[in-house]
Design a protein around this nucleic acid. Structure first.
Length: 467
RNA sequence: GUCCCCAUCGUCUAGAGGCCUAGGACACCACCCUUUCAAGGUGGCGACACGGGUUCGAAUCCCGUUGGGGACGCCA
């Protein structure tokens, strides 16, 4: 049997962190087993589904690198099939029309709450003769649930979970306008697409019991269920779009790499011994549902950032520099230096070592991407305020101008000698130098900067700063 | 309220009855390195929610308590 998993987001907003992880787990599970991972858009609620949301979700998934197999399924297009199954259930006496008004339902809900019951609907139309139907009211179709006994779901993550059937009421499978509800649609679609494993958020565990009986009513095999714990916010409450969770696009905008997100999300709720840095290839090889934890995890930005710093260092320099230049070009009103690319590639490792996000690299890279004159921050400016320091810089420029072999050790030696001769500590020379060359009090090693900048640009910046 | 689930450092977790004096990672603190900031290195702080069992032995199994979370729609 080949494994078929599916990710089934409802297009009512962006792809949030929890959804992204659900998608990742489905994708990993399918890849691990050499199976199929399909994407299905649950747009049965036309009122709340938007094209914009659909686009955002696709974008998020493709940013994450979770490519699906086959065509995307739009659930709304299967409405006919859903209705057909519903009609069959009605014909077999497994479902029935219910003519309750919203008011009646509200009353029942009230009563259920008072009486301490989980079962809301009181089955008032379950055995009533259709001839008693009030005129002019379009009924909904409800499924008959068992009245006694109990149901056990053998969940691949949560283990055996049992619920007595008297807590399950007859739920609606077809609305009064004839459209299918989510509960019917998922079951029919999962069955039709041959889903073998339904991996989704823990908030669906309760639904699994209802769906279980719907599968049975249809006479279909029940897929394996795996309900993974939800991701909580820092406050410990469910992280959903309604509760201010951010979309993956937000993290992309922040300068988080997709490989970081995959690794981070993977480790949230799943583990493989003490391993922390896990490549996607390893993840595919190792992933299993048995190692998914049963308790919810909190989202931790520090951890994400730390991982991102790691992946930033491992990123391909050519690719990363391309991204950085594009971003810098986009956000700056100055135009990039003709030497931008060569300098950036030469200086990238020094930059990346000091950054946690792509955006931080973009900021720090400006000293290489643009030619002098450069903007100075306050600390750099005050460092260069003393005429004496400017004199030192000017003398230093003279000395550096005579250096023929422009490498770190030559520059290092020359600057140290100058400091010694003037009875200055290296820092007293290096800091003003940094200010002059970078416009900042913080930068990569100053000799590295000089080498990356090259002889001409270095001297040009020194002149500008010392005059 | 009812039903369901969960419970190891602040956070993510390792842990399948003796390997546990409870391990790793992030964060935090200190020191080292050092031209700044980082990175890196070394060390430190820090947890089995509580109470009962079961057992020669329990973080691990059972029960209860407490705490947290989720679900209770003609939403998905």
């Amino acid at each position: 049997m080949t494994v078929v998993t599916r990710f089934a987001p409802s297009p009512t907003g962006y792809l949030h962190i929890g959804g992204a992880r659900t998608a990742l787990f489905n994708w990993l599970f399918a890849r691990h087993h050499g199976g199929k991972y399909v994407l299905r858009v649950e747009d049965t609620d036309k009122k709340r589904s938007t094209q914009d949301a659909i686009d955002k979700i696709f974008e998020g998934l493709s940013w994450l690198g979770l490519e699906h197999d086959g065509d995307v399924v739009f659930q709304s297009q299967n409405a006919g099939r859903h209705a057909e199954v519903a009609a069959q259930l009605l014909a077999e006496g497994k479902a029935y029309h219910c003519y309750c008004s919203p008011e009646e339902l509200a009353e029942m809900r009230e009563k259920a709450k008072e009486g301490g019951s989980t079962r809301v609907y009181d089955n008032r139309w379950r055995d009533r003769d259709p001839s008693e139907a009030p005129a002019g009211i379009e009924p909904v179709l409800r499924i008959k649930m068992p009245l006694d006994g109990e149901t056990t779901i053998s969940d691949l993550v949560q283990g055996d979970v049992t619920r007595t059937n008297d807590t399950l009421d007859d739920f609606v499978i077809l609305r009064s306008d004839g459209t299918p509800t989510y509960m019917l649609a998922v079951v029919v679609d999962d069955h039709d697409m041959g889903a073998t494993h339904v991996i989704r958020g823990d908030d669906h565990l309760n639904n699994a019991f209802r769906q279980y009986h719907l599968y049975q009513a249809c006479g279909w095999d029940i897929p394996e269920f795996a309900h993974i714990p939800l991701i909580h916010g820092a406050d410990g409450a469910k992280m959903s779009k309604r509760h201010g969770a951010l979309g993956v696009d937000h993290y992309a905008d922040l300068g988080i790499l997709p490989e970081t997100m995959r690794n981070y999300l993977l480790r949230l709720g799943w583990s493989h011994g003490d391993d922390e840095i896990i490549s996607t290839e390893q993840a595919i090889e190792w992933f299993d549902l048995g190692s998914v934890g049963r308790s919810p995890a909190r989202f931790d930005m520090d951890r994400l950032l730390n991982l991102n710093a790691h992946y930033l260092k491992e990123a391909d320099p050519a690719q990363l520099s391309g991204i950085i230049m594009a971003l810098a070009d986009e956000t700056s009103d100055k135009s990039l230096s003709t030497h931008a690319q060569t300098r950036l590639i030469a200086g990238l490792s020094g930059l990346v070592q000091r950054a946690k996000t792509v955006n931080e690299v973009v900021d720090s890279a400006s000293l290489y991407l643009f030619d002098a004159p450069l903007p100075f921050n306050d600390k750099a400016r005050s460092m260069l305020a003393e005429p004496e320091t400017r004199n030192h810089l000017s003398e230093l420029a003279q000395i550096l101008g005579t250096i023929t072999l422009w490498d770190e050790s030559q520059l290092d030696t020359a600057v140290r000698e100058y400091a010694d001769r003037n009875e200055l500590k290296l820092g007293q020379v290096a800091q003003p130098l940094r200010a002059a060359l970078t416009g900042s009090n913080v930068s990569p090693g100053i000799f590295e900067v000089m080498v990356v900048l090259g002889h001409d640009e270095t001297l040009k910046r020194l002149e500008l700063a010392s005059s």
